[in-house]
Structures are given as structure tokens and as C-alpha cells.
Design a protein around this nucleic acid. Structure first.
Lengths: 211, 211
DNA sequence: TTGTTTCCTGTCCACATGGATAGCCATTCT
DNA sequence: AGAATGGCTATCCATGTGGACAGGAAACAA
């Protein structure tokens, strides 16, 4: 009906984009092959021709979306020194989720469902966070100590929770903010708050310029 | 088939529990009324008799689950002094998500779907976190300052991200830990790490006893 | 021109879905 | 006793589902 995807693309690509949209908006089960085909402006039989089955379509979309995220992440592998490291997390967030509400919605469902591909993405994000944090950590300290060890385990998760939280909870957060959750301004302010949290915690926020 | 719910309950209750299970495991769309009825060991027509429609069933389950969480939260309204406040967050987590994988799964889907009821629950969690944090904050400081204001806005969210993150990401986290995400031991360790993060941040974790 | 491959559609199928109806059976009320 | 209410099932229905198939149409090779 709406045929939102540009008509000058190949039908295969249009189908993939329509599927991305409907999977993101309605979920995999609720998005029928006919609705997807209609959105792409083609017959629903063509879907089978190109992708074999609905599952095949899902795989194609999964691949497309997660590859996109992977590519974005690869771009971020700049060295990152000093507290540029902290800012890197903000950049990741902005780059990953800034635009493209559709991909946010899709990724949310994918992570929720725990698909193999999304599991792989999460693992990569986790490793990335771990590496950055290890670079940043004092490190010089002699004995690890039990708390330090626990921190080393959980810190990457904590960073990811702070980054992914707004994306995962966007549907409910939306009603508690008066601006879009991912408005550039909001995103920037939130990112700064995250950096302060990671740098000093919540309880000792000495006011005034700090670092 | 499996009829997992105890057979000495009323059929209505058994239907509600079966629905909770299947909604949690498969999602609302993918859980058919027939499958739910079979799980409860009754005819699928009975479902309609008791709940009017599948949507009615969902409402009943929603109410049940979210009321449970509300009741748990109400229990936590103890005064909470000093750093007992910090521990309170750990307690919330444990009490909310410790047991009951089913309710975790259900809540995850509800939050991601952004249903009205789950939105309400999130708002309540947010307010709770805000109140606790305000109690805890220095407060004596004169002028708020832009950073302090931003912190005051985002701190409750940050706390919630840390608490809800493991529940939301459990399906993918599962593969990155060698123990269950919500094993009591793991939960306790993670909670302690969260408290350290909130107290001091990630970058200045002076080792040794601290507070 | 032909033949061939690739894209694409119309149409049919078997099946599962949520819902509706009619009625059985037990309990309770009078 | 008889009536009535509420829990429960069997069965039917219209619709939508993913998939299968046959063949049209168009591009490209010879």
C-alpha cells in the first residue's frame, strides 16, 4: 500500500527494507509475508523466490542490520587516549542509535529474542568495552584484589547497560521525557551524565570544573 | 499437553498461569489460544468464556504480573538511611528478579512493547529511584549548577539501566557468563559492583577497604 | 530469429488462527 | 422436586497464514 521504499531499487532490496520496517514495527511473527510484499509493492510470491522462506528473509535482514552496526563499530577503532576513551562511549551511542529509529526497533527485538546474530553483536560490544576499559584502568596496581576483579568483570556490562538502556527502554522512556529519547541534544546531555557517572560516581559530584 | 500448572487450581487461574508462561516464552502473537488452553488442560473455548478474548487474557495477565511487581516494590518502602540506600537498589533487583524467570521474560517483553501497564511500572520505578537519590544527594550545595541539574535528571535512569539491564539483556548475556545471569551469587556480586560504581565511578577504584 | 535464464505474478492449498454458537453437566437456589 | 446459574466442551466459521506451483514477461545469449 504505502510502498515507502524508493521504487528505483531492485525488488529484492525493497523487500528487505520493507521487512526491516515491518519486523521492527510489529515483530517477526506479526509481520506477514503479504504485508511485507505489499509494503514493497510486489507479489508475496516474489518473497519466496528471492529469500526461500520467511526465515530466509529474516536472516537476510538480520545480516544487513547487524553488518551495519558492525561497520559502524569498526569505524570507531581509533586509538583513543586519555579521557577520549570516555567520550568514545558517547560517540558509540550516537553513531549506533542516533538516527534510524527503525534499526533501533529492530535491534531491540533482536537482542530481546537472543538470536545468534544479535548474541554475536553483543559479545563484540562487550569485548570492545572491556578493551577500552582495560586501557583506561590504573593497571599499575600490584595485586588485583577481589573488588578490582569483580569490577573488571562487571564494568563492561555496566557501560553497555548505560549505552543500550535507552534503546531498550525507549518505548517506556518516551513517556517520561518531554523530548524524544534520541534527540541529539538529549543524547548529548545523557552521554555527558554517563561520563560523569563513570568518572566519579553519583555520590561525590563535586561541583565546578573538574577534569 | 504438559499441563504444568497445578491441577488443583481453578481453571481460570490455570489459564492465566499458562498464558503467562506462553506469553513469556513465545510472545503474545506467537502464543495461540489453543496452545494456552492445552497447557492449562482445558478447551480453548473456555478461554473466551473467562476472559472474553485473547486481549482480555493479556490484560488479566498484565494486571497479575505488574501487580506482583508493585506489591514487591511497596514492601521496599522502608526508610533507608545512610548507604543502606545503595543496598536498597540491590535488594530491589534481587526481590524483583531473583526468582521467577517467567516473570522476567514477561516483563522484558512488556517493557519492550511499551504497553500502558508496563509504562506505568517504569514510571513508578523511576520515581522511586529519584526519591532515593534525592535523599542521598549532598543537597546542601547552594546553586544547582548545570551539571548537577543534568545529573539529577539522568541519575534515576542510570540506576534503572543498571538494574534492568541484566533482565533486558539476559537472552544475550547468558552466553557471555558461565553462570546463570540471575544466580544468587552472580546477582550479589553484580549488585556490589553497581554500588561501587554509583559510589565512586569506574576510574578511581582505590583498592582496599573503603567505606 | 530462437533458446535460456531470471524476475515476477496469479492462484491454489493445507492449515492454524481467534472467535461464535449450542448445548452438556454440576451446583445452587427456591 | 424444578429452575436457574455458571463452568465447561465440541464444533463450526471466516479469515489469514506460509508455502507450492505453473506460467507470463522481460532481458540476454546464440
Amino acid at each position: 500500500m504505502s510502498e515507502t521504499t524508493s521504487p528505483d531499487l531492485t525488488a529484492r532490496a525493497r523487500l528487505r527494507m520493507a521487512a526491516l520496517r515491518l519486523f521492527a514495527e510489529r515483530g517477526f511473527e506479526a509481520a506477514s509475508t503479504r504485508a511485507i510484499a505489499a509494503e514493497a509493492g510486489v507479489s508475496h510470491a516474489l518473497l519466496r523466490h528471492h529469500f526461500g522462506s520467511k526465515e530466509g528473509l529474516r536472516r537476510a535482514v538480520d545480516e544487513d542490520v547487524l553488518d551495519t552496526f558492525d561497520r559502524i563499530l569498526a569505524d570507531l577503532d581509533a586509538p583513543a587516549d586519555g579521557d577520549g576513551l570516555m567520550a568514545a562511549f558517547g560517540t558509540v551511542t550516537a553513531r549506533l542509535f542516533g538516527a534510524d529509529e527503525l534499526r533501533r526497533d529492530y535491534l531491540r527485538r533482536a537482542l530481546l529474542e537472543g538470536s545468534a546474530a544479535s548474541g554475536e553483536l553483543f559479545r563484540r560490544l562487550l569485548d570492545g568495552a572491556r578493551v577500552r576499559l582495560d586501557q583506561l584502568r590504573p593497571g599499575a596496581g600490584a595485586e588485583p584484589g577481589p573488588e578490582a576483579e569483580s569490577d573488571r568483570l562487571w564494568a563492561p556490562y555496566q557501560v553497555l547497560f548505560l549505552i543500550l538502556g535507552p534503546m531498550l527502554l525507549e518505548p517506556v522512556m518516551r513517556h517520561t521525557l518531554d523530548q524524544p529519547v534520541f534527540a541529539p541534544e538529549v543524547l548529548h546531555d545523557r552521554s555527558a551524565a554517563n561520563q560523569r557517572l563513570l568518572a566519579r560516581g553519583l555520590l561525590a559530584p563535586r561541583s565546578g570544573r573538574d577534569r
